[in-house]
Structure formats: C-alpha cells, structure tokens
Design a protein around this nucleic acid. Structure first.
Lengths: 317, 317
DNA sequence: TATATTTATAGAAAAAATTTATGAGGTGGT
DNA sequence: ACCACCTCATAAATTTTTTCTATAAATATA
C-alpha cells in the first residue's frame, strides 16, 4: 500500500467513478484504474464489484476508506506543520538561564522574538549556572545562558559554549559628582559605599583585586545575589555599583527614571563573561538558532568580545 | 511526502545512521541517502545536520519522526485488518462473548444455527466485556456479546452496538413459600439469603439500591462471578437469586430438574443490558447476520427492549 | 442505431527508485 | 603518519513504477 494508491482509492470512493477521480487528481483514467487494481492485487481482494461498467464498493472498502482518509489527512497536516516550523510560526523555544538575565532581558527578547507567532510556545527556566549546563547537556533545552567561570569546566561532549566578555561599568547616581567623570577608577570610589554581588562571585573578587592593586579602600555596604537589585541602591543614592553592561542595558530600557543613574566605564577593566550554551551534537532548532542570533546581536551592541569554546565554535552562530 | 521516504526517515532516526538504516531496510546506502535528501528538499528544510560524517536530527525532525511512526504503524495495521476481513468472509462464524452467555446459550444457538451446514466452522471465545469490544473493533470477529455498561464508551468508529434491555427476575426454590407469589419485591426477600454477582457488578449495585430504597435488609450469602452458577444455590434451596432472564431461559431449557426453581418477576425493575457488537463498516456476513437475527429473536422472546446505538442502528439487523 | 459514456488492457514514455561506482571526510589502530 | 575501515554524498546506469496514449468492450442515452 502506498499513498498514491490510497489517494486514488479515496477519490474513487468519494466520486464513485474512476474517470471522475482521474479528473479530480489530474491523472488519466487508466492511471487510476491501474492504481485500484494494484491495490486490489496487493490486498488480495476485490474492493469494488464491477457491475455494468460501474464500480460498487464492497463493505470492506468502507473500512479502508475511513483509514485512508485518516492517514492522508494526517500526512497533509504533518506537511503543513513542518512548513510552519520551518518559518518558525510554530514550535517551541526552550531556554534555561541563570537568574540575572532571566528576570528582564530574556523575557523581553522572547517577546520580541515571538511577536506575531501565536503558535509558538516558549519555556524559560531560571537555574544556577551549574544547573544550566546540566540541563542543556541533557538535551532538554535549546539554549542556556550562564555566568562564565574559568573554574567551571565545560562538558564539551555534551554542550557547546560560546563566551561573550564584557567590561563591567560603574553605576553612579546622576546627582553624584562622579557622574561628570568620563571614566571611573578605584581611586574615585575609595571609601565610598558600594553595592556588589556576594563575596564569592567572580565580579566581586575582581573588583576587590582592582582596589587592592591600587591601594584603595573598598567599602562594600550592600551585597546582593544579582546585579539588577543593586541598581536600586544607586537610584536611591545610597551607593555606587560596578555591574555588567547587560544588566545596565536592560535597566536603561526598563526603568521608570532612566536618568537617575549614569553608567561610566570603569578602569581597570573588570571582565565579566557570559556563556551561551547549546546542546552538543544537537543542532539548534530554527527558532532557537534565530533567537540566539538576536541575543548575540544585543550582546555585541553592548560591546561584547566573542570567543568560541567547547565542542564547536559556530554552534550558536 | 511518501511512504518510502517516511520509512527511510524513520529507520534513520531509529538507527542514527543511513548505512544501518539501509541494511535494515534491505536497500543500499545511496538509496536511503537519496530518500532523505528528497524528503528534505520537499519540506524545504534540513532534517539532519551533517557533522563529522554523521547525521544529527534537528529538533523539528523529532516531530516528524513521531508522525511518521504513527502513520506507518496505522497503515500496517490496516493491511493486517484487511487480510483478516478477507478470511473472515464466508465459511466461518467468529463470535466473542462475555463469559455468561458463552457457557450455555451461545453454544446451543450455534449448534441450532449450523445444524445443516457441515462445512461451516465456528469459533466462540469467552472474554471480558472490555476485551470483547476490543476484539470486535479489530475486525477479527463477526459478533460480540458484552455486558452493557453505560460507563463504557463504545468506540463508534470501530464497532456498532445494539443494546437489549431486560428486567431481572427472581429465582426461588420451588418449595419456597415465595414461589406462590406472582411478583417478588425487596420486602419479601428482606433478610433472606441471596446469591448475587460480585459487588462491583451493575446488577448487584441496582439490587442493593432497590433494597435500600425500600428500607429492607439485603442478606448476600453467596457471591459469584456469573449468573448461572448462582442457580445451583437456588436449586439446593440455600438461597434466592435475582438474575437476568437470558440465563434463566437457558437454565430452563437445560437443567435436569427444571421444576426445582421457579422464576418470578421482581419489582422494582432491575434493568440488565446486553450489547450486541458488530465490526463497523463491515456488514455482517450472511452467516453472522442470520446468527445475530436468531439471537435477537431469543432475546425478544424473553422480553428484551431493543435500543440501537453506536455508529449505525441497523448494523446487526 | 449512433453517440456518448463507462472501465480495462496493452504498449510506449516518463518518472522515480535503486544500484554500482566513486569520492570526500572522519575514526581508530599501529 | 599511515592504513584500514568506517561514514555520507554524488553521478551515472539500471530497474521498477507510474503515467500516458491508444484502443477495445460494455453500458447508457438520445
């Protein structure tokens, strides 16, 4: 049994005539006739009684007709669905991220990306960077976003990573005199209250190291788990903060009073890396691929330096 | 899309290799390779990423795989069913029934029916009511007899059902004073030992409800799986029983001492339904059709109320 | 009866599937 | 580094399947 036979058979059942079926299917009558007799031979039974030049379906043909109809409909809907997946009008986008980007910037990007595609579903999970790698490695997610930590070894056999390096920038209250400086250094911040991440975080360590290298005093007044909340302390003029530019960008685009904080370059450079993880050996879905492109575009606009790593450099390209 | 492409694709997904798929399908590797690329061209998208000489399915391929698997399975079962339907024609009467009627009444009727046709074979299987529907639906049997259970949904696409409703009757020992009454009610049976089916059975539930409604005490002394054995308790004067009239009829026609039990109407009516199932789309063979007629005749004689249901009312007519 | 219909069949032509032969690329062992 | 042995893709030749043309037989219709 093949689809040609099945659709010929269906058409004959619908029209009650080989000739009519042939016209509807843009074939010649002998072609359809041949299909039907081929099907009959294959099944080893008559599907139609030939009476006075006409075809009359036997009872068993009714059963076959229903099945053929179902199968053919199913296949045509599969084709349609594949087309929609191709144009990304359908499908699923599964992302797992560390908590920072998961709160604002990723939901925002996902909304932009899915804008006019009601059929597309999106999943965004917020997990620790270690868990992100684990989940992407288990092939359950299309894309993972994690803190880059040189201490963490990428399981290259399971995920591909591409790292984007940023230089952290300094957030100061707009009213603060520091806001007038083009670049901010430990000397300017010496003794001033700062808001930073917890002491184990790489950005905290690098900040402390920078202050120590220049012999300046580091006054950590506020400690948080993510960058974003630190900006509230800055906004309220309680502290300055050295944060990553991705968070700064999302704050600028979202805050009620974007003018209340100014962002200035910080020297020496405090490098902050974000890993984009994709499942190894499992090509990105079209949807995930173009989403990664969009995310990378945002990163590059903010001034990221790109650096492939893991099993394959162009995995997220 | 055609079936060759689909089964090639399925095999590649299953084996993860074009070469292996080719071996399994008894084709050469280039043949499968060609099928896959043809499918990709047709859909206008890659189904596999070619990395290091291997194929890695894109996520969209997973969807296609599931659909292909379903469709191919469906088609192969259609072929099988057509083969079965073919052999079911003519010379064989295939019946599957719930255990009750299968023990006495059906064999009896089959004997009557085949009386003068030595070349006709008969199969009678005894299965649970659920299994009966399944087997008739798979087009392997001409006729199914099952308990009617309003909770069970008839797969109208696969079987047609006609239901016959009976009012249960009360079996009492001939020597029992109750035997003189024209109608028996819960009041008369209050506290008297009864033999019934297991507590989950619809007839048991309805009996219990009738007793409760009249505030009479129900004393179930014997429990069985089928109606017929219950009559032994009645015959031995250990209990009364509320049973279906079909079983009563077959007992009357078969028992060594039919006078040892008398059957009386029971009030309030306890309804008991039997489904006659026939394969949909396959009108019964002459043999099966006339057998069903004979069975229906017996049912009507016993006082059945007929009620069509399922996909086509006159399916068993 | 003459004229459309219908379906079936034979043979030629076209299309599709399959095979053989081959090449390019990757893996693993020595 | 080299070799044997994998992988998949491609091209050309071959086989199989499908479709077409032409035609015949049967039936319905005017």
């Amino acid at each position: 049994m093949n689809l040609k036979q099945m659709s010929a058979f269906r058409e004959v059942m619908l029209t009650g005539s080989v000739s009519e079926a042939a016209r509807n299917l843009n074939r010649t009558q002998p072609s359809i006739s041949h299909m039907i007799s081929g099907l009959e031979d294959e099944l080893g039974m008559r599907l139609f009684e030939r009476q006075r030049g006409r075809l009359h379906p036997v009872p068993e043909a009714q059963y076959l007709f229903k099945e053929c109809t179902d199968v053919l409909n199913r296949i045509s809907s599969v084709s349609q669905n594949m087309q929609r997946m191709k144009t990304m009008e359908s499908g699923e986008l599964k992302i797992v991220s560390m908590p920072g980007p998961a709160t604002v910037i990723l939901p925002e990007l996902i909304c932009q990306h899915l804008g006019t595609k009601p059929e597309v579903k999106a999943t965004l999970l917020s997990r620790s960077s270690d868990a992100v790698q684990q989940l992407v490695g288990s092939q359950q997610f299309d894309l993972g976003i994690a803190d880059h930590d040189p201490a963490r070894t990428i399981e290259a056999s399971l995920v591909s990573a591409e790292t984007f390096f940023f230089d952290c920038i300094c957030a100061v209250p707009a009213e603060d005199p520091l806001a007038d400086l083009p670049v901010i250094t430990p000397a300017e911040l010496s003794g001033k209250p700062l808001a930073t991440l917890f002491t184990e975080h790489r950005s905290h360590i690098l900040t402390r190291r920078a202050f120590e290298a220049e012999g300046q005093s580091l006054n950590v007044r506020f400690v948080g788990q993510f960058f974003h909340p630190l900006l509230t302390y800055v906004e309220q003029e309680f502290a300055c903060a050295i944060i990553d530019p991705v968070t700064a960008e999302s704050w600028l685009s979202r805050a009620a009073q974007p003018n209340s904080i100014v962002f200035r370059p910080f020297a020496p450079a405090i490098e902050f890396g974000i890993d984009l993880l994709t499942p190894a050996y499992r090509p990105a879905s079209l949807l995930a691929g173009s989403f990664a492109d969009r995310l990378i575009e945002v990163f590059m606009k903010i001034g990221a330096r790109r650096m492939g790593q893991g099993s394959s450099g162009e995995a997220v390209a």
